[in-house]
């Protein structure tokens, strides 16, 4: 009996060692472009969950934009980051040692999403009509931004190299700018564009399904055991069912509360290909 207890204690100690050995607090970088209060509200509950998993303190690191975030990640100032597909691809292009942990599902339980071109005038992309005069984009590091919008415009023999564009910072603002008549075309996430379809919007072009947002770990600051422990724990998260406030519940940010699926770096190969084909001004150009 005593022998069994001793073995059990030894196993627990072995499992706990990598976590215990993590001397400083874990630094977790949420999405940039969100205010400090919003970061706290949306990401703090998830960061608390990460702290529960690792047994270590988790601090939120706030960055103004993806560029600064990726630089800090590469400089090992960040241990974990919540990234969109394009920033992840840009990261591993720079440093392949970063490890994807899990992909997050959306509210519909989907692990992929598409990007679309939306217009208020259905014929705006028709060759026989006037060309779009202004394109609304979300942000440079958004997958549905310049990268996919350029590809979708190319299908109509149009290019952002020839059409003026601007960044609104949010998908919804891109959509509404089209309704308002400020922009003639917007490149946005399809799921968001559909929410505004009753305002007379038209989805004139749609991309192939793209892998969704993921959690990425810094393999230089985490041990493999810790990475595996985080991955296995996060994969066990149950989607929020809208009625219970347990685990990834109502208090969690909308990006985290819908559950996770396993992720591989190869899932994002299509993005890698897009990045290689299309240079984004100010990002990889």
């Amino acid at each position: 009996m005593l022998k069994r207890i001793a073995v059990g204690v030894w196993v627990v100690v072995l499992i706990s060692l990598p976590i215990v050995a993590f001397a400083r607090p874990i630094v977790f970088a949420p999405l940039p472009m969100v205010s400090g209060d919003e970061v706290k509200k949306q990401f703090y509950p998830f960061a608390k969950h990460l702290s529960d998993i690792t047994g270590n303190q988790v601090d939120l690191a706030y960055y103004q934009n993806y560029k600064e975030l990726l630089e800090a990640f590469i400089d090992d100032k960040i241990d974990l980051a919540y990234l969109g597909p394009l920033p992840y691809v840009l990261l591993i292009e720079e440093d392949p040692t970063f490890v994807p942990l899990v992909r997050f599902l959306d509210a519909d339980g989907e692990s992929t999403y598409t990007c679309s071109l939306v217009t208020f005038d259905v014929d705006i992309l028709n060759r026989n009509c006037a060309s779009p005069t202004l394109v609304a984009l979300t942000q440079p590091y958004s997958t549905c931004g310049y990268l996919l919008t350029e590809e979708l415009l190319n299908r109509h023999d149009l290019s952002l190299t020839n059409i003026p564009f601007y960044y609104t910072g949010q998908h919804s603002e891109c959509v509404l700018d089209v309704v308002r008549g400020k922009a003639t075309v917007a490149g946005v996430k399809t799921s968001i564009a559909k929410q505004y379809s009753h305002l007379g919007l038209h989805l004139v072009e749609q991309s192939e399904p793209l892998p969704g947002f993921l959690l990425v770990a810094n393999s230089r600051t985490f041990t493999a055991e810790t990475i595996e422990q985080l991955r296995s724990s996060l994969l066990q998260l149950e989607p929020y069912n809208g009625t219970k406030n347990t685990g990834n519940g109502a208090a969690w940010g909308k990006s985290f509360r819908n559950g996770t699926i396993p992720v591989e770096a190869s899932d994002y190969q299509c993005i890698v290909d897009q990045v290689n084909n299309n240079k984004i001004p100010g990002v990889n150009q």
């Binding site: 208020f120 509404l176 309704v179 308002r180 008549g181 009753h198 305002l199 007379g200 919007l201």
Partner: peptide
């Protein structure tokens, strides 16, 4: 209807 709704929004936003 959706188109008109968009125009109403455009007018009053």
């Amino acid at each position: 209807r959706n188109y008109m709704r968009g125009l109403l929004y455009r007018k009053l936003y």
